[in-house]
Design a protein around this nucleic acid. Sequence first.
DNA 1: ATTGACCTTATAGCTACTATAACCCTTATT
DNA 2: AATAAGGGTTATAGTAGCTATAAGGTCAAT
Lengths: 143, 143
Amino acid sequence: MSEKKYTVGQLAKSTGIKSVTIRYYEKIGLLPKAARSESGYRLYTAQDHSRLRFIRRSRGLGFSLDDIRELLSLADQQQAPCASVDAKVNQQLEQVRARLKDLQAMEHELKRLNGCCEGGVIFNCRIIETLSNETVGAGSPTD
Amino acid sequence: MSEKKYTVGQLAKSTGIKSVTIRYYEKIGLLPKAARSESGYRLYTAQDHSRLRFIRRSRGLGFSLDDIRELLSLADQQQAPCASVDAKVNQQLEQVRARLKDLQAMEHELKRLNGCCEGGVIFNCRIIETLSNETVGAGSPTD
DNA sequence: ATTGACCTTATAGCTACTATAACCCTTATT
DNA sequence: AATAAGGGTTATAGTAGCTATAAGGTCAAT
């Protein structure tokens, strides 16, 4: 008995990853080259579906495609220690936290700016003024 | 008396924006075309310095270059109402908050994954297992 | 037979830079 | 005066992770 096969569109629908993206993943070697029907259509198996779900989930956690490539290759080495997987997750967590910190700083600043001019004209606009102000590390060209 | 002029490198050093980037900003019309010395070097004024500082500060708040283009053109219309500036800031604030929400969800998930396998092998790795799991909107291809 | 919804490929575009190559200018030192 | 270091100039290609476009082949139904 041969496995059930799916077209790229069916896979797309069931994973939420677009057909173009799936082909792109194949092109960059993130997915193995799909089998083809007589007429040249790609044919996918349940395994591909699972791999794609893995990718989608990892993307959702902010992993880069390169990271995911590594994770996938790790996932295939069932007897390897999972310390390296752990390390990747840890690393990603720190990256996310760093970006969080940046964004929080942005939010703070934007909140400060938001609504600080009440119906005036730009000449008196505190926002524009603030944006134009000196910042650390941006002195005059003669510094 | 003619203004003091600065080279691209001097401007770069004092604004923290690299020379290449400054040239790039000129190329895409974010900065006006700089005057040139006899030998073809770009010559910048204090005004350019201020404009660049504005860009840097806005970038730091996460504004896109297109947003900044608009902000700059608004900043030049001193008698226009600053409602549109306000709106841009507001919009940016919401975008930042949306990204924050995403990142917080990522952090939450990563924290959950982090360190959940204790020195085992990948075959038993809870992380890999979790990443492979079904998610909402990612059923089987036959759904 | 023809429509419409799918599939195929190759190529270019997107953001905001960064890297590279190959060359010209200025300044200081030998 | 020659030369070397450290600027500057241009054009072009590469980065991530897709998305859009064009120009065509396939499949199922009418």
